[in-house]
Every structure is written in C-alpha cells, then in structure tokens.
Design a protein around this nucleic acid. Structure first.
Lengths: 107, 107
DNA sequence: AAAGAAGTTCACTTTTTGGTCACCTATACA
DNA sequence: TGTATAGGTGACCAAAAAGTGAACTTCTTT
C-alpha cells in the first residue's frame, strides 16, 4: 500500500468521518433518538452553536445524519441518524469496547 | 452521558489514539512485520522524518508499538507492534470494511 | 582528516481546527 | 411596539497539528 492507496483506503475514510472533536458524542446522542438542535446544544455546554453547527453540517454532507425542519412556531430543526449513519452502531461499539479495555490495562 | 464522561469513554480514547495523520498507515505497515525506521520513512515519502518520529513516539508512549535498538553499525532502530497494538487488528479491519462499504454506496 | 549513514532534535512557519462574540431572520405574543 | 425564541452566519482569534530544513551524534569506511 502506498500513499495514494492509503488515502482512499476504508480505514482512512472512516477515521476522517469520525475525526471531529464533537462528532462521536453527537453520534452517541443521536443513537438515543432524533434530537432538536437546541437540546443537543444544551447537553454540550462547552460547544458554541457555530461549532456544533459545523460538525452537524459536515456529518450531514457525509450522509451520516439528516436535518429535518418542522416549521411550526417557534421553528424547530431536528437531527437524526440516516440509514448510513445507523450502520456505524457496531463500529462505535467496538471502538468503545476496545477503549474501555485499553483503559483498564493501563491502570 | 455528559461531557466529562464522554472524555473518558472508550470510543473517545480509541479515536484519539488513532487520530494522528499517519498513525493508521504506520499501523498497517507494522502489521506486516517489524520495520526499520528508515524503511518506514522510505515508504512514506511525504512525511518528514521529524513528523514520522513524532507519530511513532506518541504511539510508543501509548503502548501500541515498541522501539527496538540494534546497535551494530550503522545503528538500526526497529519499530514493531506491542501485544496491545496487535489487539487493534480486528478494529482496523472493521474500520476498513465500513469505509470500503461507505465509499461504494457513495459512487 | 573527510565523508557518509541512521536516528534524532531544534527553531521556525504554515495549515487546520476549534473558539468567542456579535448579529440576522422570522414569527408569536404581551 | 417591543421582546423573546429557534436556528443560523460572519469576522476574527487562539491553539494544535503538521511541515521544512538544518544540524548533531556515533561510528565506519576511505
């Protein structure tokens, strides 16, 4: 495998999709169900609306999540996992388990 | 899960260990066997020795790889997977497969 | 002595990412 | 009329990550 091949390799692509500072956390929340923008923001007090929005937009463009407008009043926007995003479930689980195991062997 | 819990969660930890720009590639090479520093560098022409060294050092501190000196002449340094590092195998495989699948559905 | 190899370090710059803060839009309701 | 609410933008700044290029060390060969 050379550099070019590596850039296109699956592992590289997957990691780049998950690489944002808040993306894994957002995904975890979305796995518990569709979330209103403001609620997501309230759960993550250290993230500004702008940054949260950036992460959401990138994941939406990547096809991992969907943006759903409900135009009542006040207008609400929900974010939810796409089918594609939902397939990340087992992967996130394995990442989580490996990490937990790693933490334990380090103690 | 709140912010603090998230920082310690397994998935977060795992992703941070794999987050370096060249780390996954290095790991892939090391899975094919122990590698001399200079050889690793030759395979990755776009990485400066300094950056490669940084990535290796970080992975060594994380316990994923081991640095082995052979002091003949010229002195050689080999890098190889630790037992801990070797357990990343299935995870990398799954990251890779998910990514390949993702790429296909995007085309 | 001089040159060269392998691994490493240092000083410095560029790029990317994340961050704050103020402001905009549309609408409901007091 | 004015204010609140939900979602979103733009200007600007700070920190982190990655990159460059030179130089150092140790020992061997010429």
């Amino acid at each position: 495998m050379n550099y070019e091949e590596f850039q296109k390799c699956g592992a590289r692509v997957t990691l780049s999709l998950l690489a944002g500072k808040w993306k894994p956390l957002i995904l975890f929340y979305l796995f518990t169900g569709s979330q209103r923008f403001t609620d997501l923001w309230r759960i993550m007090p250290r993230v500004s609306k702008k940054v949260l929005l950036e992460q959401l937009k990138e994941m939406e463009e990547a096809g991992l999540i969907r943006r759903v407008e409900k135009n009542g009043f006040p207008p609400e926007v929900f974010y939810e996992l796409s089918e594609q995003g939902r397939t990340l479930g087992p992967l996130l689980k394995q990442l989580d388990e490996w990490g937990d195991n790693y933490i334990q062997t380090k103690e």
